[in-house]
Write a protein that binds this DNA or RNA. Structure first.
Lengths: 109, 109
DNA sequence: ATACTTATTAAGTTGACACTTAATTAAGTG
DNA sequence: CACTTAATTAAGTGTCAACTTAATAAGTAT
């Protein structure tokens, strides 16, 4: 699931779309009006974003309002943080430091 | 710059590489040994990750040790959070809610 | 200098995917 | 029911990037 989310935000155009609807939900055509590409292209992007759990649709008549889905971004945030996690990294770095010193002393045999 | 970072973590293989070196720096060949793909392929991935500021190299003789670069992940984290930002989103949602109610009352004219 | 190790750069191939236009679905309106 | 609006699905095309093997670079040792 995190894979689809990351794949989704890969495409710059999709990130632009996310930025647009971040300030409030918009219809597919409203979104399309901000770009030079065709409506189907936008529709395809929205589908990818929806499948990734990053946007939600609200249907109203013939219109479909797209808005961002917070839970999806929470997952992404968590994923990035799993790399970032400060305390864990410090531990690893300390271990590396130690190993480096050990190797140095071994080379003095 | 954030674009290159996002592009970099797009590729599943590169994320695998990041996971590997997250537990301590490794040489190019050590990384390659964990995968089915060729050494040059790994080298190319590492170059992308380095250009994105997500990894750093430490040269030691003919070997090159690759380790993760924290600052790069900090940027990524910030970017994701710029979407996520809780308080801002709540404001937007409140505004939408209001607009929706306004439209409903208008349709009762 | 020659050889060995580690890793990269070069060049070329293949598959994925972001587009296009055309056709289709779905909901509302005269 | 025909017609309009809003959006999607279908089908096909071109570009990009992830891989391959071959050649090159840079460091160390014999």
């Amino acid at each position: 699931m995190i894979d689809t989310a990351i794949h989704a935000i890969t495409e710059p155009r999709r990130r632009d779309i996310l930025h647009l609807i971040r300030d409030g939900e918009l219809t597919s055509s409203a979104i399309a009006s901000h770009f030079d590409i065709s409506a189907p292209a936008i529709s395809q992007h929205l589908k990818v974003l929806e499948a990734a759990g990053l946007v939600v649709v609200r249907r109203a008549g013939t219109k479909r309002f797209y808005g961002i889905r917070r839970e999806g971004f929470a997952e992404l945030k968590q994923y990035i943080e799993s790399f970032w996690d400060d305390s864990l990294l410090r531990l690893k770095e300390a271990a590396e430091e130690e190993e480096r010193r050990k190797h140095e002393s071994e080379s003095n045999d």
